[in-house]
Design a protein around this nucleic acid. Structure first.
Lengths: 351, 351
DNA sequence: TTGAAAGCGCTACCAA
DNA sequence: TTGGTAGCGCTTTCAA
């Protein structure tokens, strides 16, 4: 059996308290005794206090849980998520907190159990879809948490760091509109659940369940509505996933059909890069060039010359961690909206 | 105070065991009683069994620790590490295990404490330098672990997944040698600790402390030695970090000096991309083109036309997780060497 | 400076 | 099917 603190105490002939003190309160005993205890521990192969037992007793763990309501590997596949995690981990590191990445099974009951069973002091919920159930489980545990988007309904103690999705989306749409584009397609990931890739009939942005996508589509629409281009004049394209391939598949038929749009506004850079892939492939067969915009400004966007909206990924992660680990006294400071910036590159041209 | 299992038991008028059973062994009580208990729990706001207490009692945690002996954010900054983590997290997810990313402070004593205090069932150690101290702490805790490189000295129960660094490096060097290059520079990250960026005097690869870098440099040297080009004829360049910028800085003086090498063999793609950056910047001032090779085959390598050695990043992560979570019965199967492949692109040309 | 006592919240065994 | 008992390994008063 693995030796315990008790064994060390027995070996030295002192009480457990004293051994415990030797580890976590060196000032509470003589240096000599402490040395004697540590020596005995080494001799016995005692690896130091058991972390789980210590957490139970102390009432905290030293780790924050990170939740992606999707495959966990998504976190490492999406460039924006990776940068967010870089910022988050840097700040967590500074606070001496570890990061527990919690995989969520597809089965709702088991997913909820995963949230209930995570040994953490708080949660950072990376919003990618419907995570209300997870927030509910977290609130029941009375743990602090932070999300990466404003909540749908305000909740006391709900802290978040996000951007003004709608206003940000509007800026890039205004840029495209100013270039003279009027036949425009909007591309989003999972605009409606279970919808197939490609064009979608949608009464308005309000019908989109995912708040981030809803906000961005609404912002795109705002810009055109101001110029008299109605929602019904816009094409909405659905991608079945936030990936390059899904973006490419979503637009393929539309771009190669007759009367294609002159511009495609995507809800993420990854989708937009997929559009560029389709465009590059279709190449000579296209009647005329198509302008494309993305959202996020990931590294690949610059290389591809993609016009996009920049949001500060690492900073978002850093602030999320700080909101959790060093909560502001003023509750209003728990709601952070970051600035975004339109980045114009070569993927948008006059219509 | 937060309600505990005991409170629920009191409320329903049953024993704690029965409440516990209601949560983790539903077959041990009648459906009716279980419903009654769960209802009471809901009423009281009991969020379910405390994960830490459960772990203590059960003796396992359901998480594996991931150690990067560097800034934790490095894990998200290095493309190869990110792909490794994607593979690792996918496999962990399948096994229902969470991932605890443990930040390691710079201070050695505190770093060791971080390893000792992590509540995990095992460790995956991503090798980036000297991690013997961490392995030592893990062994004392008698936890299973896996590393991403063969150990320097064999240890029972040490499992690893790696590649034959030396043989792999040799293949790309042979390719460069076959193109006729004889004046060659080798570029590695932290070839010697605390060495400045740029050329380095080194008696031989054996003097390099980091095993991965040592193996790759030795492999490069092997290829040239076979053609009569001695170690002393090769230039060794030191980069102070595994980053594009560090790679660029390491080669700048050498490439723009007189009598520059005709080829640079880098120990990673990231470093090689830095070399390409320097080359692009120096551009017209260069006497003649310089061939460059990398190592890893990250996504950016393809776009940059970089000749490199491909190693299966995601698979490495997946196998690491499986070695840990589903240990093979045969101990020999705990040592996995993955295949690598030379990928020739446009960054290498005849001398 | 040291030790005794009292749990942290839970689960697993065994007996009823 | 239910409950009593006995810890899991530790830390923290408080008293000596």
């Amino acid at each position: 059996m693995k030796p315990t603190l008790q064994d060390v105490a027995n070996a030295v002939g002192v009480s457990r308290s004293t051994v415990s003190n030797a580890y976590c309160r060196p000032d509470q005993l003589s240096a000599a005794l402490r040395e004697r205890i540590l020596d005995a521990a080494r001799q016995l192969g005692y690896p130091g206090p058991n972390p789980t037992a210590r957490s139970l007793r102390r009432g905290f763990v030293g780790a924050i849980g990170v939740l992606f309501t999707s495959q966990l590997s998504y976190a490492f596949t999406d460039p924006f998520a990776v940068r967010f995690l870089a910022g988050l981990s840097g700040a967590a590191e500074r606070h001496g907190s570890a990061l527990l990445l919690v995989p969520l099974p597809d089965d709702p009951a088991r997913a909820r159990a995963a949230v209930e069973n995570a040994a953490v002091d708080g949660f950072c919920v990376y919003c990618v879809g419907n995570e209300e159930w997870a927030l509910d489980a977290i609130r029941r545990r009375a743990l602090p948490y932070v999300t990466t988007a404003a909540p749908e309904e305000a909740h006391p103690a709900h802290r978040y760091v996000g951007i003004d999705e709608r206003a940000a989306a509007r800026t890039v749409a205004e840029h495209v509109a100013a270039l003279g584009h009027r036949r425009v397609a909007l591309l989003g990931d999972t605009v409606l659940p279970d919808a197939p890739p490609g064009p979608l009939r949608l009464a308005g942005p309000a019908d989109v369940p995912h708040p981030t996508t809803r906000g961005r589509l609404a912002g795109f629409a705002d810009a055109f509505a101001a110029l008299g281009v109605d929602w019904s004049d816009l094409t909405v394209l659905n991608a079945t996933g936030n990936s390059r391939a899904a973006g490419a598949a979503a637009v393929a038929a539309t771009l190669t059909g007759d009367d294609p749009p002159s511009a495609v506004l995507a809800c993420s850079d990854v989708l937009a890069l997929g559009v560029l892939d389709t465009l590059a492939e279709a190449g000579p067969h296209l009647a005329r060039p198509v302008s494309v915009t993305g959202f996020d400004d990931i590294a690949e966007a610059a290389a591809a010359g993609l016009t996009t909206v920049r949001q500060p990924a690492e900073e978002k992660g850093r602030i999320a961690a700080e909101l959790l680990l060093a909560p502001p006294a003023d509750p209003a400071a728990g709601h952070v909206l970051l600035d975004t910036a339109l980045v114009v590159r070569t993927s948008t041209r006059p219509a």
